[in-house]
Amino acid sequence: MSAEQMHPGQHPLDDDLVRALIAGQLPRWAGLAVERVPSGGTVNAMYRLGDDMVVRLPLVEGGASDVSLEQEWLPRLAPLLPTSIPEVAGFGRPAEGYPWPWSVYRWLDGMIPQAGALAEPSLLAEDLAGFVTAMRSIDLPGAPTAHRGGPLGTLDTETRAAIQRLRAVPEEGIDCDAVTAVWEDALRAPDWDGPPVWLHADLMPGNLLVDAGRLTAVIDFGCLGMGDPACDLFPAWNLLPADARDVFRAAVDVDDATWNRGRARTLSQALIALPYYRTTNPAMAHNARYVIREVMGG
């Protein structure tokens, strides 16, 4: 696959297709400027629509169900959260050869934070903790199960397969034996035995927006649902430096077992992402390397 083609079965997208979809289904916005938004996202492509909207289209079939999930839950979650989240402005159907549903959202200002280059890491840690604790305090019935929100052991097969793939890429410099030992130690710990909680379940740096170092929005709720609270601890290792990690941990107020599961889940995601995206998505591969260094270094 080329650098543009992250996945088998990825549907080709361009400005002309987006213009045709808008003109055919949302004609009130026909004629507005359309421009691809650079993104390290792996499931959706985004196109700026005019000044204050963005079109979000799944790249692969697996992302299609996220469209209806967000359309159903985002309006219900928004008033319960301290941080801005995407607002659905319109939605579309398959057409023009494009096979899946898609959405239009209000544009949210902000920059994607970069690990190692945070303006206010401790304040950002507090903001992230505020979002995470607000999510897990939500009480809305009928929630789906979060993607990867179940027991840690459900990730074992995929994680071990990823470690084997990394053994075949020695230039990455991953100590696969040490990584395996950390993973196996985490698997021996107790699973979450409390009630499932609401989760964003994909708090990657690319799903966060900041301004002047502070969190302004959280985006991409395609993995949302209920599950193990450890699933929303990812920023501790995929974004925050060690001192801000301590601030985050104190503010989210989780026990040692939950913290350790969060560390293992973040490591698992990075191990899976690195061999898959190392030649097709530089942002994802770079962050995966960062996570592995942070986890294995402390």
Rank of each mutant, 00 (worst) to 15 (best):
W237P: 02
G31L: 02
R293P: 00
T159G: 03
S39Y: 12
A201Q: 05
A161H: 06
A3S: 14
E72H: 13
P144T: 13
L274V: 06
L32I: 02
A89C: 14
A236Y: 03
R76F: 09
G50A: 11
T133C: 14
S268I: 02
T83M: 05
H200G: 02
G24A: 15
L80G: 04
Q25P: 08
L69S: 11
V252T: 07
L26H: 13
C223P: 00
L59F: 01
V197Q: 13
D51G: 12
G150A: 11
A288E: 04
A242G: 08
E35W: 00
R165E: 15
T180V: 06
A125V: 03
A119S: 10
M1Y: 05
G62Q: 11
V43F: 09
W183H: 09
C231G: 04
R245N: 02
G222W: 08
G41D: 05
D232F: 06
G213E: 01
P58Y: 03
I85T: 10
P12Q: 11
A125W: 01
T216M: 03
A168E: 13
P79T: 13
A119P: 01
C223W: 02
P275E: 07
D220V: 09
D193G: 13
T133N: 15
A186K: 04
E87D: 08
R76Q: 15
T258V: 14
A178F: 03
G173R: 04
G110C: 04
E72A: 05
D193E: 13
R48E: 08
D156T: 07
Q269E: 10
E126G: 06
I163R: 15
I112R: 13
S65A: 15
M53S: 10
W192Y: 12
V18M: 14
M6N: 10
A285R: 12
H200V: 01
L124E: 00
A143R: 12
L166A: 11
P58S: 05
V55I: 06
P195I: 01
S68W: 08
E120W: 00
A288P: 00
T216N: 01
P235I: 14
G142H: 07
A270C: 06
D52S: 15
L21A: 08
T157P: 00
L74A: 09
L59A: 05
A288S: 07
G31N: 04
F91Q: 14
S39M: 09
D191V: 09
R265Y: 06
S84V: 00
E184N: 13
A230L: 03
L81S: 10
G149N: 07
R36N: 06
Y277F: 15
P113T: 06
S268L: 04
F221H: 04
E35V: 11
S137M: 03
Y290A: 07
V252L: 04
M53I: 02
A129W: 02
P144D: 12
N281C: 11
S103E: 02
P190D: 08
S268M: 03
Y47T: 11
W107R: 11
Q164H: 15
T280K: 09
P141F: 07
G92K: 05
W107V: 04
P79L: 14
A161P: 01
E126Y: 00
D109I: 02
D177L: 02
I163G: 05
R148G: 02
A251P: 00
